[in-house]
């Protein structure tokens, strides 16, 4: 057996028997003695060998970001971004106003908001903080508060990590196995020879497909949509927007719901059901008029 193969094998053998911290320390010492890994790296590899991915919640912000970029690359191929600097700036200012009062104000590389060209009324978010709203949806929105309501719903999906949950546990388990092998290979090669990224890239591709399929075809669970609506109402209120704007948007969507089976309507519960759910879970303040200062700047989006 080559030394590289030997270290790889040791990672798995020692890893499976190192549930006790003392044993793990001993195992790390044995691994480190090969000269191919440092003690810290050996400890890291053995920790991986002893654990399993418990849930999608365990993905790090960095991994969510790369997943979100790949999901975005697929979405934007279908719905290209509108290239309007004023609209982009305005949309991102609305979005960041909401993000700043959210429970996850910072993701790995920050939130991004974009209008995408599409005749379907739709909005979606990718892991890591990529939020998209279709041009058809924008044309239906009457004011800034209504726009904020749509963005708040999508931000809620990011904060609640609903996109990540679209990846099955089986896929993540598979990813861990492949990643452990890749990590052991890296350790064994002293980062001097190419690592076989093929298997983990395959799992990555499957995960991306799972999220894209959920966003465009299957939709989130009804409970996740209701959760996103409730959090959106809270975000609007925290930021100083009128949370009643969310109900106004849902009412607009309800008028389009009959006969529409694509886009938003294919992936979301009936707007009327969502309004009913919201009213039972959220105490709305009296509706207020959108201030003149916010009305004046809304033209940037149109």
């Amino acid at each position: 057996m080559s030394r590289r193969g030997l270290v790889t094998a040791m990672v798995f053998v020692l890893g499976t028997g190192c549930s006790h911290p003392g044993l793990q320390q001993m195992g790390a010492g044995v691994l480190a003695s090969t000269g191919y890994v440092t003690t810290d790296q050996a400890n890291g590899l053995l920790s991986a060998g002893t654990g399993l991915v418990k849930s999608q919640e365990d993905l790090t912000p960095e991994q969510e970001y790369y997943l979100g970029r790949a999901v975005s690359a697929s979405l934007l191929a279908k719905f290209p971004p509108r290239r309007s600097a004023p609209a982009s700036r305005y949309l991102n200012e609305i979005g960041m106003s909401l993000v700043s009062v959210s429970d996850t104000p910072e993701t790995f590389a920050g939130y991004r908001f974009a209008v995408v060209e599409s005749r379907e009324i739709n909005a979606f978010s990718a892991p890591g903080g990529f939020v998209y709203i279709s041009s058809a949806f924008v044309s239906e929105l009457p004011d800034e508060d209504a726009t904020a309501a749509v963005l708040a719903h999508e931000i809620a999906h990011v904060v609640k990590r609903h996109g990540i949950n679209a990846i099955s546990n089986a896929q993540l388990f598979s990813a861990l196995t492949e990643a452990s092998q890749a990590g052991a290979s890296i350790a064994a090669s002293k980062v001097s020879s190419p690592v076989n990224l093929g298997p983990i890239t395959g799992v990555f591709a499957e995960s991306v497909s799972g999220v894209v399929d959920t966003l465009l075809t299957k939709g989130f669970d009804r409970s996740q949509e209701y959760e996103a609506d409730l959090y959106a109402a809270e975000l609007l209120q925290r930021a100083g927007y009128d949370p009643n704007a969310l109900v106004r948007v849902l009412a607009i969507l309800e008028t389009h719901a009959k006969g529409e089976h694509d886009g938003w309507f294919a992936t979301h519960p009936r707007p009327a059901d969502r309004i009913e759910e919201l009213n039972s879970d959220f105490t709305f303040p009296p509706a207020t008029d959108v201030p003149a200062s916010r009305k004046a700047r809304f033209a940037a989006l149109k």
Partner: peptide, 20 residues
């Protein structure tokens, strides 16, 4: 890697720049 995490290697090698 997140050295104290159960999914330590996945953190680095699962979905990374190299995989992208």
């Amino acid at each position: 890697v997140r050295a104290d995490s159960a999914e330590v290697v996945l953190a680095g090698k699962g979905f990374s720049k190299e995989v992208e």
